[in-house]
Design a binder for these strands. Sequence first.
DNA 1: TAACTTTATTAGCTCCGTCTAAATATATAT
DNA 2: ATATATATTTAGACGGAGCTAATAAAGTTA
Lengths: 221, 221
Amino acid sequence: MREEASESMQDYLKNIYLIIREKGGSVSTSELAKKMRVSPPTVTSMFVKLGERKLVKYEKYKGVKLSKKGEAIALEVLRHHRLIEAYLVEHLGYDWSEVHEEADVLEHHISEKMELRIANALGNPKFDPHGAPIPSADLSSIAKDETTRLGEHISGDIVVIERVREREKEELQYLAGIGMVPGKQAEVESVAPFGMVTITNENGTHSLPKEIAMSIHVKKI
Amino acid sequence: MREEASESMQDYLKNIYLIIREKGGSVSTSELAKKMRVSPPTVTSMFVKLGERKLVKYEKYKGVKLSKKGEAIALEVLRHHRLIEAYLVEHLGYDWSEVHEEADVLEHHISEKMELRIANALGNPKFDPHGAPIPSADLSSIAKDETTRLGEHISGDIVVIERVREREKEELQYLAGIGMVPGKQAEVESVAPFGMVTITNENGTHSLPKEIAMSIHVKKI
DNA sequence: TAACTTTATTAGCTCCGTCTAAATATATAT
DNA sequence: ATATATATTTAGACGGAGCTAATAAAGTTA
Ligand SMILES: [Mn+2]
Ligand SMILES: [Mn+2]
Ligand SMILES: [Mn+2]
Ligand SMILES: [Mn+2]
């Protein structure tokens, strides 16, 4: 499967998938260039290459969408990434804030056999340590998002944290420090006009900038 | 450390180290080309590149030797390789015959942090599942070889197996099947003129072609 | 030593993934 | 609708790691 795409192509496909999953439609050159920290011409030439290999549908000046095959590769890499993150936390004592970089490399290099053994060692989890859904082994399904963002809630809402999106290691450490991790509860105290959210949880009262509040997925209870 | 050398360079350094460790002196173009399954000109150009980076001392028409720095990188990669093999066997249920390919890739991609955690999870082993010595964490030492080859022994010698060198997966499986794995004993029954060795162990009597007998390291008891 | 064989290097090409600078298409604002 | 700003593509380059074909050095044998 992913052997048909180089490590670099795998990363492009994965990031295209992630962007589309979050906001639908197609992915533009500049969007992807920014996310992947490469120049726009680099993205254009990769779009062409992925298009030739039918991993992507590319329309000049209109961006790309994933083909069935491209999506399968993206899901496989994502499955690896999230299983590895979970494994590092569960079996090698990593903190959830430090698994991302390691997984971002290893996702391209473990065999199917190793994927299987890791998944078994973990009991075939459905979510990674940040609460992100892990694609199924046959890549046919991935839990769909039924959460809202903490930043969308209003004063008085009581929520349980479902997921915290990838962010800087220091931010994740801070969030863990104040108990804002998947599974925990919090009550929204107030929302400032500029979007800052103040919450109270078992660790006390804390304010979170809008951007961070938007990267915390919750369910209202 | 190894960040200074690309994945490909790391593999060249590792293989140079392995050849020199086995037979001393320096490594020739054709020797390495054969071992690494690339063409001789590819090796020559890599020799030049490694020489420029002072990872190797290259003398035209006379092959290469490792510099201090080149050796350190080789040892680091080798440490990774062997720790990973051990980890796969101990913690992910791999058979010793199937760990090599996986380790050959992952050796270049695990972080120093992961190396440390794997080593700790294993109790800082000194040998990998095949009996090969694992370089120490500071790369200052590696157990020196005090073994002989099964193929060098004579009728009547009783030996304990210390190590089985990397070979085809099927050969390793066969050897495991007849109990020729590190830690087990065997008695040399006879040695044919063309080098085939017949041994008896707890599993019965078996004959091994010279090449295989030479890849089994033992100690006479 | 001369001839021949083997080994190694040089020359030149390819693909990959990246870049910058220049050109062009699309979107926005007056 | 025109001018301006922004996004995208094209052109051309580079370094890394590989290849084959041609050449040259080293080693071997007569
Ligand atoms: Mn990646
Ligand atoms: Mn994650
Ligand atoms: Mn390798
Ligand atoms: Mn080994």
